[in-house]
Amino acid sequence: MYSAITTSLENAILLITINRPDKLNALNKTVFDELNTAIDDVYNNPAIRSVIITGAGQKAFVAGADISEFQGLKHHEGMDLAKKGQYIFRKIEEAPKPVVAAVNGFALGGGCELAMACHFRIASENARFGQPEVNLGLIPGYGGTQRLTQLIGKGRAIELLITGNMLDAATALQYGLVNYVVPQEELLAKARSILELVNTKAPLAVGRCIKAANAVFDHTKDGFTEEVNLFGECFATHDMVEGTTAFLEKRKPDFQGK
């Protein structure tokens, strides 16, 4: 089905692997198209409860965009490319199921932007993050200027953007860009352990937590109003009845995502 990514579903966790290790998993048109299709499946397939995105091999998560596809592009074509990347990454950010980036190695340029579009990040000890687009006469185009600033603050973000420097995993953890740093051989296991716990929670409530948190950065919404609305919506779900009943009956809830 796919040529540039692979997918596998185990224990309701979908593992999406960017699979171009000879190109350090660089993002090209095929990767974008296949990633878009895979994320559509995340939205529509009830068998999927959560997602891990990672890169093939031990060197790179995604080392950037495939720069060969940039040559010869005009102004409007560059804008179209950025719009496409932002559309797909926003779809990841707004997914109603948690999407975790398991960053194994380099996450540079579009790779850093992909990682930041995920709901949180876990890094291997050899992970490196950066937005080196200024070295190419460019800026990040897939949401990097916005999400980096949201995640680590304006001063640190601008310094990284205008120097093109990389952050090592320990600094990324200190800055709050990643939640955990683990040995590479433990990376996927760490991501799975968190998502296996999440998968025991009420799926509709998990999705609404993500939606409410995203509203903090959506200037078209009042986050507190959004929270009130989403809180109220929970009361119309079977899972809320089951969760509160199970609590009072001192038993484990059986959530159905309804």
Rank of each mutant, 00 (worst) to 15 (best):
G64I: 04
A102Q: 05
F217E: 07
D33W: 01
D22Y: 09
I152G: 02
C234G: 05
F106R: 10
G111N: 00
K221G: 06
K97V: 09
T7R: 05
N229L: 07
A101G: 04
A157I: 05
I158S: 11
T54Q: 11
N179T: 09
A123H: 03
I52M: 12
T6C: 05
V181E: 03
K250F: 13
G232T: 08
T244R: 13
Y87M: 14
R90T: 05
R128T: 13
A95Q: 06
S68P: 00
E233Q: 12
T163M: 04
P203W: 05
L9F: 14
Y2T: 06
E77Q: 13
A115N: 01
L173P: 01
A38C: 12
I152Y: 00
K83Y: 03
P46H: 10
T171I: 15
P46F: 13
F255W: 06
I52D: 01
N179V: 07
F120S: 02
D218F: 00
N25V: 09
A172I: 05
R90M: 07
Q174D: 15
H76R: 06
R121M: 08
P253Q: 08
H75M: 11
E10Q: 12
L81E: 13
E185H: 13
K190S: 12
G243Y: 09
A47K: 13
I16D: 05
P96T: 10
P21Q: 15
E69N: 03
N11T: 14
S193L: 09
G85Y: 00
A107C: 05
L187W: 04
F106D: 05
N165H: 10
V228C: 12
L197C: 12
Q174G: 14
G109A: 11
L230A: 07
F70T: 12
Q150E: 14
G257W: 11
N19P: 04
H219K: 15
L195Y: 07
T244I: 15
C209Q: 07
N45I: 13
V198C: 12
L151F: 03
G232R: 06
L204W: 00
T30S: 12
L195M: 14
T54Y: 05
A102W: 00
L167M: 15
L136E: 10
N165I: 08
A202C: 14
S193E: 15
A107S: 11
L148N: 07
D41S: 15
V178Q: 02
G243A: 13
Q256V: 15
T171F: 07
A169P: 03
N36Y: 08
Y180A: 11
N104Q: 14
L204E: 01
R251Q: 11
G57L: 11
N19M: 10
F61G: 01
K23Y: 14
E249D: 14
D222F: 06
A107N: 06
V103L: 07
N19V: 10
L230G: 04
I158T: 12
F217Y: 10
H119I: 06
N126I: 08
A65V: 08
G111L: 02
A56K: 09
L73N: 07
G105F: 00
C234W: 01
Q86D: 08
V51M: 09
C118K: 05
K91F: 14
E94D: 14
E226A: 13
N229A: 06
R128W: 03
P253S: 08
K59G: 05
A123Y: 01
H238C: 02
L195H: 08
V181H: 03
V182G: 06
F255L: 02
M79T: 14
G72Q: 00
